[in-house]
Design a protein around this nucleic acid. Structure first.
Lengths: 186, 186
DNA sequence: CGATACATGTAAGAAGTTACATGATTGT
DNA sequence: ACAATCATGTAACTTCTTACATGTATCG
């Protein structure tokens, strides 16, 4: 991650702050209490990440000396932050994303609707579906070529991956239908 | 990762070296050319990781001044390395592994058969199945509780995860059958 | 002669982990 | 008094990323 690039954790925070202004503590709790876990609930990751976002002008903190507890610093997204978030959400989907960064793709998808609107969400789903349709055959092809050389458990592990991607492909097709119906309904 | 602990990349390398003695270059190619990608094919990750394994006495390098190309350093697993690998393979499976480190679990599974034997592989699968059967209801429960508060895309993203885990549960049940049949066949 | 494949490494910097530090408020 | 929850942060350490450095052999 070179200077001025944002790590996945940064986008996760930016997306959540876009949904509603939050303190570092609020955000930590989301990571510990919901299935959105896996994005490090540790203060040693979150507070420095928030400070970086603030230094880049993507979020703005205001201290709420509120209701008696220790001071809270509530972060809100700035126009620049919203633009940056949308740029990330609308970015292309590559082979590598589908194969090795599915979590990040699903994180993007979860924010798309609220932050970039339904047309952008539909475009994402169609790109995701298209990429899966390219990726699945290469996986299956690899398996059929190497099946004999692999150990039983290695072969099964690959099959597990393939089944997962097939489930996701079906999901994507269904989700596309959902968004197309919503489009018509308007 | 504190001193003397091994990162996932380290175990991936250890497992591959156990399958067959390999050079750093051989290992890199596996990460670039096969669906086992996602474990950083960069020399800046692999060579330092291999040196750490060697310093810990888990692999042993021997320089092959071989066939005319630049010297190769071929690494073989040591008895200590095999013990460490088996310890990792046989470790418990927790909620957190299923929810956030599925890749690591599948990596373990891919090596289990060859490095720890079929009984250990079957035990792994049964533990994996059991943990999925605990985890899936908590996910579904979370979804039903929060469905109304979530945006459409957030809800769909969760459903995507659920479908993936259901596919994996079916896979695990099938794989258990495969290993039980092999057990009987002996 | 230049590109490509083989082959191993280092250096600077970014980001995460664990553990610690600090401090207020509420409940027991 | 003490634990738990709220709340923000830092320090040391590990690891990974990106980019560079080095060198041989083969092919067109």
């Amino acid at each position: 991650m070179s200077r001025n690039e944002i790590a996945v954790l940064g986008y996760a925070l930016l997306g959540l702050i876009q949904q509603r202004p939050s303190s570092g503590y609020d955000l930590r709790k989301i990571f510990t209490d919901t299935p959105m876990a896996g994005y490090s609930d540790s203060p040693g990751a979150i507070y420095p990440a928030l400070r970086r976002l603030e230094e880049q002008g993507l979020v703005q903190g205001s201290i709420v000396a509120g209701a008696g507890l220790r001071r809270r610093k509530v972060l809100s997204i700035t126009p620049a932050g919203l633009a940056e978030l949308r740029k990330w959400l609308a970015g292309p989907i590559g082979q590598d994303d589908v194969g090795n960064h599915l979590n990040e793709l699903m994180l993007r998808f979860a924010f798309l609707d609220g932050a970039a609107g339904e047309p952008a969400t539909l475009r994402f789903l169609q790109a995701f579906e298209a990429e899966l349709k390219l990726y699945l055959p290469t996986l299956k092809n690899f398996l059929s070529i190497h099946a004999e050389k692999l150990e039983v458990s290695g072969r099964l592990a690959l099959e597990c991956g393939i089944l997962g991607y097939e489930a996701q492909l079906q999901w994507a097709s269904r989700a596309i239908t959902v968004y197309k119906n919503r489009e018509k309904a308007q």
